[in-house]
Simulated assay, not measured.
Amino acid sequence: MSPQTIRKVVIPEFGDESKVQVVSAEISDPEPNHVQVKTIYAGFTGADVNMRKGHYPMQKKAPLTPGYCLIGTVTQNGQGATKFLPDDLVASLTVYDADAELVNLPEKYLIRVPKGLDLQQATALILDWNTAYAMVKNSAKVKKDQRVFIHGVSGAVGYATAALCRLQGAQVYGTASTRNHELLREHGITPFVYTDKKWMESMNELGGADAVFDALGFESWDESYKILNCTGTLVAFGGNSDSLKGEAPRSQILPTVKLLARNLVPNAKTTKFYYITKDDKDFVTNLQELFRLLGDGMIKVPVRSVTDLDDIQEAHRSWGKVPGIGSMLVRVSKDAA
């Protein structure tokens, strides 16, 4: 086949939202062992925002096409790719390139999506909920009746973590914007305001947390460690505090070293840092289990906003400001509901 013309998002240089463009470009046939996928929905996260600013760890140089994950349909296979047929529904953690009508991806990184799932909810499972699942089940091993504290509990990963902890029978507390507190209480979560620090006193009065999940980083990791009970686990999974305040990000190297060095202190507390990759040994099995939970009605994935590809600048402008709880998506295919 000859190259096809598609529309995709391009960040030609780093900067504010105006740097994000939708352009026409050509895509060639897939290389050997690759599959061409027509994107239906792409996830939209803080990673996209930080890539646009040029602040994401070890990211590509501009120009680049963002989009960390997608669900779409197979259009054609490259030589040696035989696992999927045209029109098969697949998911992938792409890291880049999901904000495009067509994308060529290695076959080994595609996961079949069961029929009948809500595709918006399923898209949010790939990155947001899969990150949460690994932290809850593998890193912290949350159990029934434990006390869990989550920073940013109304966000995409934060809410997913809360929902999965509650599924385990844990009591969930966390910090969030006051505009979301009533909604969080309806979901069985006890919310606090981060800035007044009353959450620290309250958690310690309860006896401390069995697990704390903290994506803010830096000083927040020190504070989170202080609310652990004597055998608690702190799971760090980002350093978003600077981005949320609109400030240039600081290096996470020394804070991460300090975080993990706490394990050298002779006590039963534990600190961990989690970063999801598509090569994780449990990535596929965890996602398949999440697909099963969604299909069985065991989880419901809130989606706070869906932005069309043409409005991608608005997604960047509104990140961190959209009320409600849950994930944000980009609708790439014009045929998507």
Rank of each mutant, 00 (worst) to 15 (best):
K115P: 03
I150K: 08
V49N: 06
L105N: 10
L102V: 11
D87E: 14
P66Q: 03
L125M: 06
V148D: 09
P66L: 07
L127R: 02
A62T: 08
I71Y: 00
P63N: 02
V49P: 08
M58K: 15
E26S: 15
H151S: 13
Y133G: 11
V35Y: 06
D97K: 00
A140R: 02
Y56R: 10
V113L: 09
L85I: 09
I11Q: 03
S24Q: 14
M51D: 02
G72K: 02
D29W: 02
Q120F: 00
F44I: 05
T94K: 01
R147M: 13
A81Q: 02
R112M: 05
A132M: 14
V95L: 12
H34I: 03
H34L: 13
L85R: 10
V23W: 06
R112K: 13
A62K: 05
D88S: 08
I111S: 07
N138V: 06
V23D: 12
Y133E: 06
T65Y: 02
Q59C: 15
L93A: 09
D87Q: 14
V20I: 13
V49R: 03
V113E: 10
K61D: 15
I71M: 01
G72M: 01
D29H: 08
L70G: 01
P106D: 10
A134E: 11
N33D: 15
P86M: 11
L105Y: 08
K53F: 09
A47D: 02
Q21T: 13
D88Q: 06
V20C: 07
V23S: 11
I40R: 00
T94R: 01
K38H: 12
W129V: 13
V136N: 07
E101A: 14
L89S: 03
K19P: 09
N138I: 06
P66M: 02
E13Y: 09
V9C: 08
T94W: 00
P12V: 10
K61S: 15
L105H: 09
P57H: 09
K144Y: 04
K115A: 13
D97P: 05
V20K: 00
F44Q: 05
E101M: 12
V148Y: 03
L85H: 11
A42Y: 01
G152I: 09
Y68L: 11
V20Y: 01
T82H: 05
Y109L: 07
A98E: 06
P57R: 05
D29T: 14
A42Q: 00
G67A: 07
P30V: 14
R52H: 08
I71A: 04
Q146P: 13
L70A: 06
S92G: 04
F84P: 10
G67D: 04
Q59R: 12
T65F: 02
L105R: 04
D145H: 05
K108H: 12
I27C: 12
Y68K: 04
M58R: 15
V35H: 06
K38E: 15
M135G: 08
T94P: 01
